[in-house]
């Protein structure tokens, strides 16, 4: 499935999402978020809890809970505005053109249904195929993900599979209909590091093999190294920085990204004998509450580089380097 003739398959413009409490008090979870996804690209979305990354994932598919509301903006997917789409149109897009892979592989699968049937169910819901060609397509999909033991996996129940295998079944469901965009929300949370690597390799081969664009949502920057083409950093619902992975992670511009990366334990380079058991640098203070209002930059209270204009208004995105966009007054904003 290639969409080579268009430049972006997804264009998100000035998206605002808020959640309302019972007393109709709004908490802005996503504020003025704009970004694009190119066909076959892996975009990493980096953010901590409460940064709005899961809200972003669910609102791209219009699956927000009842108290969530998209207040402004547009989501153009393959040229169509998803915010104007009817429920019927959405149904034909979800699962078929855009697939979502959720955080927990054990809750997402039906416990008493063989996994082959569960993947087949997705095909039955979206593609008008007869039984035989459906079975053929199912075999192809499962063969791609479990080349060595297609049959055994297909006839297994979820509890018979390991965490990594279950996660791959979810991936099989996601790609069964040949979508052009897969949104993966923390796909490697709560699996060990070997399984993590295994799943990330699957994503890499998906992109290679099928030309699928992937939005990979994570709180762990080190996962994105060597995998994502570009990284988008979220803080308190705002895009603070977006750019090619190399430049965002090695030459980060925004003070938040820099501080976040400093929090990681030193990498395994053997030279950190002296620093062992010393304190790790931290970001002072806590993440802001979403229902509080402030005029200035949301990171200002915790920022080490803050100065006068930071309190007056929110910084605008500027692009000091090629393709690297940052929202901070240090760069003009």
């Amino acid at each position: 499935m290639t969409t080579g003739d268009i430049e972006f398959i997804l264009e998100v413009r000035n998206l605002h999402v808020a959640y309302f409490s019972r007393a109709r008090v709004a908490s802005s979870a996503v504020v003025d978020v704009s970004f694009d996804v190119r066909p076959g690209e892996i975009l990493g979305v980096l953010g901590e809890s409460g940064s709005g990354k899961s809200t972003l994932a669910t609102c791209l598919l219009r699956l927000l809970p009842a108290n969530g509301e998209i207040q402004q903006g547009s989501i153009l997917f393959e040229g169509r505005d998803l915010l104007q789409a009817t429920p019927r149109e959405l149904e034909s897009i979800r699962g078929r053109r855009i697939a979502l892979i959720n955080q927990e592989p054990w809750v997402a699968l039906h416990p008493t249904m063989r996994v082959g049937d569960q993947v087949g169910e997705v095909l039955a819901a979206h593609e008008y195929l007869d039984k035989k060609s459906r079975r053929e397509r199912l075999r192809q999909v499962l063969e791609g993900l479990f080349p060595a033991e297609t049959n055994r996996i297909s006839f297994s129940y979820p509890h018979q599979l390991s965490g990594g295998q279950r996660q791959r079944v979810l991936i099989a469901q996601a790609i069964a209909c040949g979508p052009s965009l897969v949104i993966a929300d923390e796909p490697t949370a709560s699996v060990d590091s070997a399984t993590q690597r295994e799943i990330l390799t699957v994503f890499e081969s998906l992109r290679r093999g099928f030309g699928v664009a992937i939005i990979l949502i994570t709180h762990n920057p080190s996962l994105l190294v060597g995998l994502a083409d570009r990284v988008l950093v979220l803080y308190a619902g705002r895009v603070v920085e977006i750019g090619p992975t190399e430049s965002v992670l090695s030459h980060s511009l925004h003070p938040y990204t820099q501080a976040l990366l400093r929090c990681l334990p030193p990498p395994l380079c053997g030279a950190n004998v002296v620093n062992r058991k010393t304190k790790l640098p931290v970001i002072a203070g806590d993440a802001p509450k979403l229902n509080t209002l402030s005029l200035g930059c949301r990171f200002e209270p915790r920022c080490e580089d803050r100065f006068e204009p930071c309190r007056t208004r929110e910084p605008l995105p500027v692009s000091p380097a090629d393709e690297h966009v940052v929202s901070c007054f240090k760069f003009g904003g």
């Binding site: 590091s193 690597r197 996962l223 190294v225 060597g226 820099q258 400093r262 990498p267 380079c269």
Partner: peptide, 29 residues
């Protein structure tokens, strides 16, 4: 970690997203 002897240790070291080593993160390494 400098010279892992056992297979399991080598696997763990390889699976650690330590490739961040190669990137020049300010304040690290």
């Amino acid at each position: 970690l400098g010279s892992p002897q056992h297979e399991a240790t080598r696997c763990l070291v390889a699976a650690t997203p330590g490739s961040i080593v190669t990137l020049n993160i300010p304040g690290v390494c």
